[in-house]
Amino acid sequence: MLQYIIKRLLLLPLLLFIFTIIAFILIQAPPGDFLTSYIAELAASGSSMDRAQIDALRTLYGLDQPMVIQYFKWLGRLLTGDLGVSLDWQRPISELIGDRLTLTLLLGGGTFIFTWLIAIPIGILSATRKYSFFDYFFTVFNYIGVATPTFMTALVLMWISFKYYGINISGLFSAEYVDAPWSLARTLDLLKHLWLPIVILGMDGTARLARVMRANLLDELNKPYMEMARAKGMSEWRLVMKYPVRLALNPLVSTIGWYLPLIFSGSVIVATVMNLPTIGPMLLRALISQDMYLAGTIILIYMVLAVIGTLISDILLVWLDPRIRMEKTG
């Protein structure tokens, strides 16, 4: 088991190196660079720069050098832990994304916990009471949950709360705390705002997960081991939780890791609509303005999370299922 994990970990540096290349190529893929889009933006707002100014800036940012050199300079700085400066915001990237990273993780983690806490019990109850009112109710509910785009739910809820209650539910902080330093009051204010985006973001996932859990569990419920457990004299509830639920959860738990990068990328639209200070909208803006170092950093974080997520998934799978454990480590 330990050997297996170590083997997987040793692969990490190589993967990360490949990722930096991919990230860099991705960022450079659109024609032009930060300055071209900057100039376009200036032009759109009526002002302009002359040739000399542009060239000076180009030299300043290193944009005049060949791509390969730019890449290695970036990589070199990354290795020393320096993420660079955002061209667009003119601030160090680490400073820029620190807060947003925390909030994104908080929101993603919260959504994840919410999803599992709600979906798994619904899945279990639907499967064990198949074709009951409860089951039908949640079947319909789940279809609606899956079919409604989350941003739509967000818009509708925002509209309702504004129209009927006069409350503006966008953002994660009340106005007075938006730029305030962290404090107990600010944290409490955050929690007050956090639950709604969590519910909105979690709806879709909850519906999906509940359906998968129900289907998985139904597959398990008429396996012979169920009959055997009954014949042993186990109480129905205990045996359902111990055997079929465990077996139905196995494939689900092993996907937990994949969720990690999704925490980031899944919520861009909702975050934009609801004006949430998370990573998603920032990446969007960085890509549009071709703010290469910022976009590169965020994409790199995505990829690292994806690798870590897959690793967690694999470890969970091996840990949970002795059959796979034997195969992979035996």
Binding site: Y225, E227, A229, N250, D321
Partner: peptide, 15 residues
């Protein structure tokens, strides 16, 4: 007590 037809399937594979 019951001795089932298929002992393979009557045991849980993960316990």
């Amino acid at each position: 007590a019951l001795i089932p037809q298929e002992p393979m399937a009557a045991f849980s594979p993960v316990h």
